[in-house]
Write a protein that binds this DNA or RNA. Structure first.
Lengths: 384, 384
DNA sequence: CTCCTTTACGAAGGAGCACTTCATTAGTAG
DNA sequence: CTACTAATGAAGTGCTCCTTCGTAAAGGAG
């Protein structure tokens, strides 16, 4: 009896019906009363009562009736996704991205600002503030409209949102990111590991939509991993899950050296482009580049096999910068996994690209709002 | 909105209340009406109605009132755990164990029969049948009383209960165990990997009681692993999770060679006792044995670190034959994990020992009955 | 332009479930 | 034997959902 079942009062039944109505409206956009009644399984009059209650609470609004239908036009209702707004933040080594979205997770505006991994802390924090401010301005909202700000960043995060350790951003280690953001923004603040956010985005609207068990592998100059079990992003007891790349024997941590130090890379190529050059050459058939890719995938396959053997996921999603070259990477990786694993999972490339982490941050904020407001464990509050 | 919420009829409320009442009665043994009402949150009269319904359905029975209380003695009710019975089966290389339990998972009888890994298939199957028959006889039940038989065995299992691959029992690979057991026994038949069952048992009543995120490591001549995420044993998309030992780089598969081929083992020691000898010598302080243990734990720590880094569990449970020597193994393992991992999880030794797998099989059968009968998704049937 | 068909709306009446309240009953303690 | 305690059972109330039926508002045919 895992999910501590609870019965109770009549009012609890109403509560459950209200929540199902909200869920149906959010999932299917504007609905007429009859359509909603059919989806929730309630009778029309009961549905009406539920919707009335949601209207007075401010969670539901009426939309103009659909045109061109036979018979009396039905009133249409939809979830008021604009009763609150969410900000997603991706604090990376080289870019800070922000996105503004409504409660359905529909993105209204995005902004980006380049930084450097060794940008001093105060400058980085100022850049964060600017990026968020311009994103809000672009979307025509103010911070008062924002209910939740979810930030994703590189590094190991504590449950409290402090950065335990971060190799990629020197100034980051030990920094109380959640505390700082809370002082900065008067809304709920969440801090999460960027790979887990990327995995979430792929599971919500990317390559792993509607898949319950996923291994997400961030391939790039820096490696990361995240795991989705039973449809839920696994954070771990100390929110440190996914750090398998820290194990030397997993051969993930510095696998990218094979791509970045390939002999064919022209003198003077900036380090950021080196691996891309090798991958492009491999795609063009260059034998030296192909050999480097083989060595890279040799390494990659070890850690990936470990995850696949341990978890037997339905899908492995390749994300991160190198996943643009998934056409080059996936076939050799598939060949190695086929040999090493019991059941070869589906291998897919990320479909969300660079916006993966911000998008995942938005989805994380959506999940937070859901858990906070749209749960049977607490009464439904009024929407602002 | 992950767990597709459902509201509905008034009858649904009653259904939920009935299920909470069952859950409360199962969790807390005999209860008076008032006590049950307090636990479920319902009023006394409603509780009475619920209990009456459960009595007529046959799920609840009355027990004699408690003695020596002031006031009118309250009638006491309890879950009728004896309306059905469950059989757990552990089909190992060297032993076949069976257990008979009631619907609460309380074990009524256990039997064991030794076999050999290379026992021919038909003899092994005959032994299974005998072990179950004697267990039923010992418990005074017949197979008609049994609702579910859950079998655990070594090897990779398909979702259909066929054995995909098994190194330890040669005759096992490719065998349709579930099909065979279904022909043999006229009840629900489940087949599951033995490490996952052991992990389940530890999580339900062993070293990891009330822990949600667990890595279970079976240490013995054969290695195995299982993972519990969010309180649920993770089976994987193709029910092949936990097979990380198949990866050579995880250094789990033949780690035990360090213990089994230690120089101090006397000539003529049977292979089954060799590792035990080394471990005992190490406990006594023998430097050669201690060095072998160090080498063993060196290997063990690699695969374990991979799992811990990837999943960040709250607890790692050491089970299997060698876990009897956990006092020797845990300290050096802890030292290595402390170096390799971000957050050191709690390391514990199995508390269930050899009966771990049968017990887990029983718990698996209990979970099956729960999911089948005590779920809001289906109406509660009559018992029997 | 009117009438008919179609579809949605709204009100009324009924059933089921849980709640509160209170008189009654069956024990123990003195 | 009486007082006290605690559970029981019956009665009455309120809430939520259901079904049913008359009314309202649109498009389309004549």
């Amino acid at each position: 009896m895992a999910p501590t079942l609870r019965g109770g009062d009549l009012s609890r039944l109403r509560q459950l019906n209200v929540l199902t109505a909200i869920a149906a409206l959010r999932a299917a956009g504007p609905l007429t009363l009859s359509a909603l009644a059919e989806r929730t399984g309630l009778s029309r009059p009961s549905t009406k009562e539920v919707v009335d209650e949601l209207m007075t609470l401010g969670w539901v609004e009426e939309t103009p009736p659909a045109q061109g239908t036979v018979g009396r036009p039905a009133r249409r209702y939809r979830f008021r996704a604009g009763s609150g707004y969410l900000v997603g933040l991706d604090i990376g080594g080289h870019n800070i991205r922000a996105a503004l979205a409504d409660l359905n997770g529909v993105i209204l505006s995005e902004t980006r600002q380049p930084v450097e991994p060794d940008t001093p802390l105060d400058e980085r924090l100022a850049a964060i503030e600017r990026t968020v401010a311009s994103c809000l301005a672009l979307g025509g909202k103010t911070i008062e409209d924002v209910w939740v700000l979810a930030a994703g960043t590189i590094g190991v995060i504590t449950p409290e949102g402090r950065i335990l350790y971060c190799a990629a951003i020197p100034a980051w280690t030990g920094f109380d990111l959640a505390g700082h953001l809370r002082r900065l923004f008067p809304c709920d603040v969440l801090v999460e590991n960027d790979s887990r956010l990327a995995a979430r985005a792929e599971a919500v609207r990317g390559a792993a939509r509607d898949v319950d068990d996923v291994v997400f592998l961030h391939v790039g100059r820096r490696m990361g991993a995240a795991v989705i079990i039973d449809g839920k992003v696994h954070r771990g007891f100390g929110t440190a899950a996914g750090e398998i790349a820290m194990l030397p024997q997993a051969r993930l941590f510095d696998a990218s050296r094979h791509l970045q130090s390939c002999a064919i890379i022209p003198e003077g190529t900036p380090p950021a482009d080196a691996a891309g050059y090798t991958l492009a050459a491999a795609r063009a058939g260059d034998p030296v580049a192909l050999a480097a890719v083989e060595r890279y995938v040799d390494d990659l396959a070890v850690g990936t096999s470990a995850m696949v053997l341990l978890l037997d996921p339905q899908v492995v999603v390749l994300g991160g910068g190198f996943s643009r070259s998934a056409d080059v990477l996936l076939p050799p990786l598939r060949a190695r996994l086929e040999r090493a694993c019991i059941r070869l999972p589906d291998l897919r490339a990320s479909t969300l690209g660079d916006e993966c982490v911000v998008t995942g941050a938005i989805d994380y904020a959506v999940a937070h709002v859901d858990a906070q407001h749209f749960t049977p464990d607490a009464p439904l509050p009024t929407a602002r």
